[in-house]
Simulated scan of single mutants.
Amino acid sequence: MNETSLQVASNVKRIWSFMIDDMVINLLLMIIFSSQLSALMSGITEVNEASVMMINQFIMDNIVIVLAIKVLYHTILVWQSGMTVGKYLLKIRVVEMNSGMRPSFTQAFWRASVRLISEMFFYIGFVFAFFSPLHQTLHDKLSNCVVTNA
């Protein structure tokens, strides 16, 4: 990638984008699971071992759906436009490192999958951005992508 033609997005913009995307995904999940969450919360009258068990069971029953929605959100939006909602609002985009174009579907899917794994392990893959000259996270590096200003 020609570094003079594309300006790498700052970590601050990436952090804000991450937070916005998390809020969008959580809103989607609340809508999808609204009836189940209402039923779950109406069954909890006090915090005790039984209520904790009910919440844990809800999480275990739906974890695959939640993870799939997160991967699909990031894969489809990055593949289609190079931007998630958060990236759009912050005017940054994901591009393929060599061409400067949108990532392919495979790259977007790989990036979203590694991103999810990084989240599950204490966001360790995101720390890479603070030590990389191109502010690349682990999922950026492994998918051969970089986040630039749009």
Rank of each mutant, 00 (worst) to 15 (best):
E96P: 04
H74W: 13
G86Q: 12
N56M: 14
A68Q: 09
V64M: 15
G82Q: 07
V95H: 12
F105M: 13
I32D: 05
L72W: 08
H74E: 12
M30P: 00
M53A: 15
D61Q: 15
V66F: 10
E46G: 01
Q80G: 02
L37A: 06
E49F: 07
A50P: 01
M83K: 15
I55A: 06
I31V: 15
L37C: 03
K87P: 01
K70L: 06
M30V: 08
A50F: 08
I69P: 06
V64C: 07
K91Q: 12
L72V: 15
V52H: 05
V94A: 14
S99I: 10
L77V: 00
Q80H: 10
I76N: 02
G86I: 06
V95R: 14
L90N: 06
G100A: 12
I76G: 07
F105W: 15
L67M: 14
N56S: 14
P103Q: 13
I32R: 04
I44Y: 01
F33A: 02
S35K: 11
M101W: 03
S34Q: 09
Q80K: 15
E96F: 10
S81L: 00
Y73I: 00
G100S: 09
I55M: 09
L67V: 13
T84D: 13
V66M: 14
T84Q: 11
I32Q: 04
L89H: 04
M101C: 01
Y88T: 06
I59K: 08
K91C: 00
F58Y: 14
I69G: 08
S51E: 04
T84N: 09
R93Y: 07
K70E: 12
K87E: 11
I31S: 06
V66A: 12
R102K: 15
I31E: 07
I92L: 05
F58D: 06
I44W: 04
L67R: 08
N56K: 12
E46M: 12
I76R: 06
S35Q: 10
H74G: 05
